[in-house]
Every structure is written in C-alpha cells, then in structure tokens.
Computed example of a mutant assay.
Amino acid sequence: MAVSFLGHELSDLCLGKPALRSLPVSATVADAVSALKRSGKSYVSVWTCEHSSKKKTTGFAGDDDDDCRCIGKVCMVDVLCFLCREENLKSPSKALESPVSDVLPKVPGLVKHLEPNSSLLEAIDCILEGAQNLVLPIQSHTNTKSRKKVLNKPNSFRSTHHNGREFCWLTQEDVIRFLLNSIGVFSPIPTFTIESLNIIDMDTMAVHYHEPASTALASISRALTEQTSVAVIDEDNRLIGEISPITLACCDESVAAAITTLSAGDLMAYIDCGGPPEDLVQLVKMMLEEKNLGAMLELMEEFSVSSLSSSSSSGSSDEECGWSSKHGGSGRYSLARTSEAIVCYPRSSLVAVMIQALTHRRNYIWVVEDDYSLVGIVTFAGMLKVFRSITGPRRKPE
C-alpha cells in the first residue's frame, strides 16, 4: 500500500497552490529586493525566457517552455550574504545594482521542472538529489490580454505567465505535509525513534555565542542551500539558539550591517521578533564608523527613515513572514522572526518530529540531549529518505 501511495501524481499536491511570481534574469538585485517587499513572500523566482512563435502550447512543462525556465530563486538571505562580501561592504548601493544572477546560488539542480503527472516518488527522488523546489505548470483562467499587459512591463515583478501559462512550485514541506496526512499507510515506521531510523545528521553548522557573526557567513549560505540552520552554542556545546535563513529571510537589507559588526549572540537578538533593540542599533552604527564603512551606515540610516515614513500606512502581512511596520527600527515584525531553536530528542518518534517541524514551519529540528547539548539535526530530506527506502534503491540521477 505504501508503494502505491508514492505513485500519486503531483497534480494532487498542486491543488490550491498560488501561481509563482517571477523576475526576469535581466533584473537587478535591487529589483529583487523591491519584489520581495512588495509581495510579502520569502522568495521570488528568477526566469530566463526565449519564446519561439513556432511552438504550440500543449499544457505540459516539457514542450513549449523548454526555452522558458525557472533558473533559481532569490530571498533576502542571498542579498544579505551578497552585501556582506568584502568587495561590496564599502559600496552597498552599487552592489544592489548588480544583476540578480550574481546572488543566485551557484549550486546546480536546486530548482527542477516536473510535469503534473509526475509521481510523488519522482518528486522525492529529485529532493534527495538536491532540489529545493519543484516547478510545475498549473491551469490558469487569467485573461490573456491582461497577461500580455503585465509581460510588456520591463523588469516587472509579475505572475509567471510563460507562453500563456502559469506555474507553481512544490517544496519539501508540501511533500512532508502530504505524507503526514496519510501517515497510517506507512505504519509502523512513523512510530520508530529518529535515533533508531539513523536520520540524525551530526554534521551540523555551529558558531559560538561570542564569535563574530561574520564568521558564520559561509555557514549561513550553506544552510540556505541545504534548508537547515546555523546553531549558536556555548563553550560546553549547549544549544543557545540559532541563526536561521528562515528568520533572516524576513529581515531587510540593512541587517547586512548587523551581520558585519555584531557577535553571533547579539545578531540573534537583533533579528529576533519585534525588531532590534535600540542599544544594538547604536552599537552597529558605532562599529560601522570604526570600520570606516560609511556607505553601509548610510544605507542603514536611509532604510530606517524609509521604514518610519511607511509605518503609518503599511499594515499588510504575509503568510510566510508576516511583514508589517510594527517596529520603526526595522519596519517589520514577524512571528516567524525568532532565534529560538526548536528541539527534539534522539528518542523522539519520526511522526512527532514531522508534526513539530510542520507546526513551526521549519525544514529541520535540532536534536539535543536533556542538558541541551547539541547532538545533531533532523531534516525533511532525512525524513524523506525513510519513506523512499520502502520502495528500494533510488533511480540514478540524470
């Protein structure tokens, strides 16, 4: 029964999924930042399109859109890591005018196009091969004329109407949620402990509480690619908190200044729910002056002024980040913005950890001992390996 369940078509998982919003590959980093803020979403997809008038739309991803592909996605974490590069610190405004392709992760296979009749098993294989998102075409009843008007706007942030069609994407979370809804099919495996299933990954990324946050930049970038996080630990390897890409994705570009100047512990407080404490804001400004990073200071102050001016009129929120202008210092407030680490224990059951991760909208859960010493991490990808093992060896990557 479990094997047949994994034969479900992906169209079953696409029901109710919203159409992707996209940017052309010709857009700038500033365009991406603007798109993220206007949409209230954590990510924006980036597309390259070379339409051919001789092709005929058939409704499947492999036909007329071979030359119209999603080549990646950009979130604020990509922008922050880009701005924190040594060559961009002294001129962040110039860096924001760089092509958006400069901030796209240089890891192949993060985005994979599939067709609606592809199976759940195929999707799981793609994820285990490294795909973050699976792009699928969806039915659209949007008026064609109105679509063309949007497409004619240069560098516009728009729905992904490609050759008259829209697309959505499926995430690891979508797949795990779908599996959980029919978890009884896989009994008794979901009741086994994560330790007995050997899915605790001990190759974790961590930074000590008092270390400079900038030393964790490479780990933050890797965590974004692997959809995990960076643990913040004390001298006894106890988990204090985390620097999570999920949290950073709900911040603004001025947080690059905090990453550049603060310790890991102070950065957790700076990006935590409610906005940065005023004493840390002043500390960042003082340290920017000491480092002779006046341009970064100007960007930070310019954003603060912009946030204050918009706080009286902005009240929108987003299902992913919950952005709004509740805090004048950062212009945003989010229930998703918390540096508190979500933990489980080696004896926790697989189904319990699945529920915990989905409840907190995390792709991972930290594993600790009773004294909070860090053991490792359990990810959605690790969970999917368990369900995939039921059907035997995986297919060879293309």
Rank of each mutant, 00 (worst) to 15 (best):
G164E: 11
D63S: 11
N155Y: 06
P108H: 10
E122P: 12
L114F: 09
S119Q: 02
R158V: 08
D66N: 12
V74Y: 02
L114A: 03
K106V: 11
D66Y: 14
E115I: 13
D65P: 00
E87F: 07
V74S: 01
K73Q: 14
C75W: 10
E173N: 15
G59L: 09
H162L: 13
N163D: 09
I127F: 07
F60S: 12
N117V: 09
V107Y: 08
C168G: 01
T171K: 06
T144W: 14
S93Q: 15
L83F: 00
D78L: 12
A123C: 05
K145S: 11
K148P: 04
V135W: 02
N88W: 00
C168H: 03
L83Y: 01
L96I: 04
S140I: 03
K148T: 07
S119F: 08
A131R: 01
L170A: 04
C75L: 13
T160Q: 08
Q139F: 12
F60W: 15
A61H: 07
T57M: 12
V107H: 07
N155V: 07
V111R: 01
G109S: 09
L134Y: 01
S93D: 15
L96D: 09
V103S: 05
E166W: 06
D63Y: 10
S140T: 11
T57R: 12
S119L: 04
L96H: 03
D64S: 13
F157I: 06
N163H: 08
L114Y: 03
G72M: 02
G164A: 07
S91H: 09
V77G: 09
L134G: 00
L83C: 07
S140G: 02
R147E: 14
H141W: 10
E129G: 07
L121N: 14
T160W: 11
R69P: 05
I138C: 00
I71C: 10
E115V: 13
K149Q: 12
I127Y: 12
A131E: 06
E115S: 15
T171Q: 07
L151D: 05
C81L: 05
L104T: 05
R85F: 02
L179H: 08
F167C: 01
L110I: 12
T57K: 13
K112R: 15
D65R: 00
V135K: 02
K55A: 13
P154V: 04
W169Q: 14
D102K: 14
L89I: 03
N155A: 03
R165L: 03
C68P: 02
V150R: 13
H161M: 12
V74L: 04
